[in-house]
């Protein structure tokens, strides 16, 4: 009899149902799983880029392709501009995480200003990317388009290959474009979030969990950039 009543007792272990076993809200778990699938997409693009590059006997030298600071210097400054872009994105990731931290304390004012800072960072990054793309377009790069041979000569350290240059061009615009699209949607979502914060939606709701979820997406965008930066500009 006593053993039967033991069976009748409601179990309270994490996986016995009736509660979230990971103590994570549904939307946050779904955001994590979305990010995993998105990471797969970016991995596929970057792995394909790596495989292409690995299979070619020559490849455009990033130090020679990316050596301008649009609006300031035409050449001679490898990595400086992309360094600024990287700094902007890491900085906006920090302001986002500070917004999340302020959300934990339910300080509406602080969340608002950190979100404004994050959005400004996002716009600055997009502006830099637009400047860099414009510069490359002027050089003659685009999808399916490469500069004439005389220009290409200055972009390779070893032998010059039009096939490699074409692959580089296509993959550069596709991958940074896909990343830029993520930054753009991230900025749009951040703006919507800012409106909700200002309207007091989360005050009424009693928690700022939505800031955390949007924050996850924004950090993911930064994370992808870390990899894009390494494989396009450094390696």
């Amino acid at each position: 009899m006593s053993s039967l009543s033991q069976l009748d007792q409601v179990k309270t272990t994490p996986w016995s149902g009736g509660r979230s076993p990971w103590s994570v809200e549904y939307g946050k778990i779904m955001m994590w799983f979305f990010l995993v699938s998105d990471a797969f997409t970016f991995s596929s693009l970057l792995v394909y880029y790596g495989a292409q590059r690995f299979s070619k006997f020559t490849w455009p030298d990033p130090d020679l392709v990316f050596q301008s600071v649009p609006g300031l210097a035409e050449g001679g400054y490898p990595l400086v501009f992309v360094g600024i872009m990287t700094f902007i994105l890491i900085m906006s990731s920090v302001t986002m995480v500070l917004a999340v931290e302020a959300g934990h304390r339910r300080s509406k004012k602080e969340v608002t200003w950190w979100m404004v800072a994050t959005i400004i960072g996002g716009f600055m990054f997009l502006g830099c990317q637009a400047a860099e793309w414009t510069h490359l377009f002027h050089e003659g790069f685009s999808w399916g388009k490469i500069p004439p041979m005389e220009t290409l000569k200055h972009l390779f350290t070893g032998e010059v290959s039009e096939v490699s240059a074409l692959q580089f061009s296509n993959l550069f615009f596709t991958i940074t474009g896909f990343h830029g699209f993520h930054v753009f949607t991230g900025v749009v979502i951040n703006i919507i979030l800012l409106c909700m914060v200002v309207n007091g939606t989360f005050e009424k709701r009693g928690h700022y969990l939505m800031v955390e979820k949007v924050g996850l997406y924004w950090h993911f965008v930064d994370l992808v950039w870390v990899f894009v930066f390494t494989f396009f500009y450094l390696v």
């Binding site: 076993p21 990971w22 103590s23 990731s93 924050g215 994370l223 870390v226």
Partner: peptide
């Protein structure tokens, strides 16, 4: 970024 900014280190 994942462990601290995305807070994954502190999850279950």
């Amino acid at each position: 970024i994942i462990a601290y900014f995305m807070h994954l280190k502190y999850e279950k």
